[in-house]
Design a protein around this nucleic acid. Structure first.
Lengths: 204, 204
DNA sequence: CACATTGTTTGTTGATCGACAAAGAATTGA
DNA sequence: TCAATTCTTTGTCGATCAACAAACAATGTG
């Protein structure tokens, strides 16, 4: 085994690629852009990451398990539904408007345009988004079963409402809407959940 | 003057270009794709539309003054704020999930990815989106002044909430969320406006 | 008719795309 | 020391990108 040791930091290079993809999307970033941003020749990128698409996939995974995991974390860690959604939405706004970082959500923004070659990428990101909607749905179904929600509440409609709003926040942030303004929309966004909650849980 | 008459229908060709851009975005459509979809050679496209970017711009204008103008129409034609927003959201869902058409909003989806060459396109679409948020804001400010809204309501936050939700609907629709499910989210989405309305206007 | 004007056809341009081949350099194990 | 292995350097590949040039065809006007 052995062989010549790699001269660059793979994780560091991957993070740079993630930031570039985050900012400009999959097709918006060329290999030449990656060469410049990562600071290594294209043949080295191919040796370390196999292809542009595989590199993008790794970058998305890095994002999803890091910054992008705020939703999963909020849903898993907050016992109260309302607290979970409050935190989730707030964290979303903070992430999407973080200074000195690309605005918006990488998974929402990185592949809406798509040529024939990037259909696979687009499809995969769509699955990520549907998964997120699915985890919102799961949490709300659980809330319905445990009595946190009123018996006539519709977890599916609520989940899709929040998924839509969350994805819309990303578009707004990418368009430069300031953090404070997006934060000011959150009390409105929480109304549907609040009004679907049973009085008992609400008064806890 | 005079000269040889054009053999193809310009409006028809433009509509086909719009549909293709709507489905795959600006960068997702190549001149070769346009040649195939419009059924005319590239030199004829350049003669009639000047450039790919100018063609795209015309396609967006066509969209905005046609299908995409639902928001403007609803806000202008419905005297009651609540009716206006009800109709606006409903029309959005219907348009974004229209069978045998590209799903989602052309202006939201057509340029989130962007290379260095398409920055101008992206910027222009961003302006369109901000204009839409602006017209929501205008209508809500008017509602605030005429007493339709409670005196402590915040038109800006409300407008940004609805802009975000609207843009999120587009992402959901593009991901294939069915029409009926998106429609089922609308009662939830209307809650913030309803609760910001003064009781007097609410009971009309 | 001749001429100006405009549309169409055909073929091609230079740039850029993602991807790799070949050769040299640095490491470990035998 | 010398293979075996892995990374780095350099150069380039064919495909595709948007865009156009030149020659030809069809119309209206004088």
């Amino acid at each position: 085994m052995a062989g010549r040791p790699r001269e660059f930091d793979r994780d560091e290079a991957l993070a740079k690629a993630r930031d570039l993809f985050w900012e400009r999307g999959y097709e918006g970033v060329s290999m030449a852009d990656l060469v410049e941003a990562m600071g290594i020749a294209s043949a080295r990128i191919y040796a370390a990451f196999e292809s542009k698409e595989a590199l993008f996939q790794e970058a998305v995974t890095l994002y999803a398990s890091g910054e992008g995991g705020f939703a999963t974390r909020a849903l898993a860690e907050e016992p109260n539904v309302l607290d979970a959604f409050k935190r989730l939405l707030r964290d979303a706004v903070l992430l999407y408007t973080r200074p000195n970082h690309p605005h918006g959500c990488m998974i929402v923004m990185a592949a809406t345009n798509y040529t024939i070659n990037s259909q696979a990428v687009r499809t995969r990101l769509g699955r990520y988004r549907r998964d997120r909607a699915g985890s919102l749905h799961e949490r709300l179904k659980k809330a319905s079963e445990t009595g946190e929600l009123k018996s006539d509440a519709d977890p599916c409609a609520l989940a899709e409402f929040y998924a839509a709003f969350l994805h819309g926040l990303s578009v707004q942030a990418a368009d430069g809407v300031p953090r404070e303004i997006l934060l000011s929309t959150l009390p409105h966004a929480l109304l549907p959940l609040k009004s679907a909650m049973s009085v008992k849980a609400d008064s806890l």
